[in-house]
Design a protein around this nucleic acid. Sequence first.
DNA 1: GAACTTGGACTGAACGATCAGTCAACACCG
DNA 2: CGGTGTTGACTGATCGTTCAGTCCAAGTTC
Lengths: 219, 219
Amino acid sequence: MSVPDEEPRRAQMLEAARQVIAERGFPGARITDVADRAGVSPALVIYYFKSKDNLLAEAMRQSEDLWYAEMSRRAAKIPTAAGRLEEVVAMTCHVSSEVVLEGSLELWLDLWAQALRDPEVRAVREESDEHFRETIRQIVRDGVTGGEFSGVDEDDFAVAYTALLDGFAIQVALGDPVVGPERAFDVAMQVASQQLGFAWEPRRARRRTSGKQPTRVRG
Amino acid sequence: MSVPDEEPRRAQMLEAARQVIAERGFPGARITDVADRAGVSPALVIYYFKSKDNLLAEAMRQSEDLWYAEMSRRAAKIPTAAGRLEEVVAMTCHVSSEVVLEGSLELWLDLWAQALRDPEVRAVREESDEHFRETIRQIVRDGVTGGEFSGVDEDDFAVAYTALLDGFAIQVALGDPVVGPERAFDVAMQVASQQLGFAWEPRRARRRTSGKQPTRVRG
DNA sequence: GAACTTGGACTGAACGATCAGTCAACACCG
DNA sequence: CGGTGTTGACTGATCGTTCAGTCCAAGTTC
């Protein structure tokens, strides 16, 4: 799993690779770029990872792991299930940003496209998506148990809601002029509150970056 | 727009390019592949389209146009708004397949990933997505006017529902072991019927290709 | 209507750039 | 000294693009 302290070189290169992929895309990432960013020679990169494909696949895996670790870390701090769900949505819609997550959404687009042909990447994607679904599922279970949520099949909800968030992630990552981060966040939370039966009001404290004003929450 | 009858060579090459992209992915598509498939020399491909990037971008545009043309064609045959919506969902979840649509979902993944860096592709994607949203919006408007649907903001619904369908398209395109075409279709229709307030029952006539049994999972 | 010209469609071969991966050598360290 | 880490220089393959030139159908001229 490449613990930074035990394998500093590997970790350093994986992080470099993550950044390069986010910038130039999976197919556009060159070992030279990774080497430059890590401050080493291209040959050393091959020395540690046998091939470019291997390096990139591992970088993808690590990036996903990082993302979910950050998600867990944040969720653990929040007492209510609704709050945890909101945090997940915020992360996915890039409303709250953090350096660790830089380029995560963009990486997803490459992850999906690459998963179509590369079996190793495909495995990472499947695992990652199931992880995401399970996270949602658990939050819903907790919410139902604690009396916050009601009237929903947790499994169907998890499937539908991850799809919804993936869809919003696309829009946000691509900087869609109609569906910006704020709009995506609001609509996603609106759907969740309605489906799960909890109260939620958009807080206008957040500054919007793009997207239309959400017109009147439905009656 | 490259009408087949007026510009047979261009159209032939664009179709070849579409197939090659679907097979090898956008970055993996080589002009040699396109030339071979079209039965011409690589040089001729460059002769018609100035560059590879240009060819591929136009192929993407044409593919999207084809998809929406097919969608309109089908929708026009269906009298009820609920039926039209169901048809759109069926197309997106690949429940009903047609030769014309072969590889469309896979192409979307490449479209999104490529849109991150290529401005021309980005424009295609934005236009295409707005087109999709407008289609949904119009169906909802019709449904509300005709008394089929009620209690929904058409704009918010369109934004959310296209995101949902995009998300399902990913799962289906990647052959997710948990979320297959049938499951995606059922859940998507369930969400729609609930949000729009119309009756819908899963018909078990459709044959499933993958994915778990949709009703009653995990006891 | 024969001879000649024009221009578009088309090709094979070659060029040149780009990269992933190799290798022999070297430095450092226990 | 031997092994681990590191490098610069090189190689081999891939591919987009260019180019010189062929082919042929449709004018044009006398």
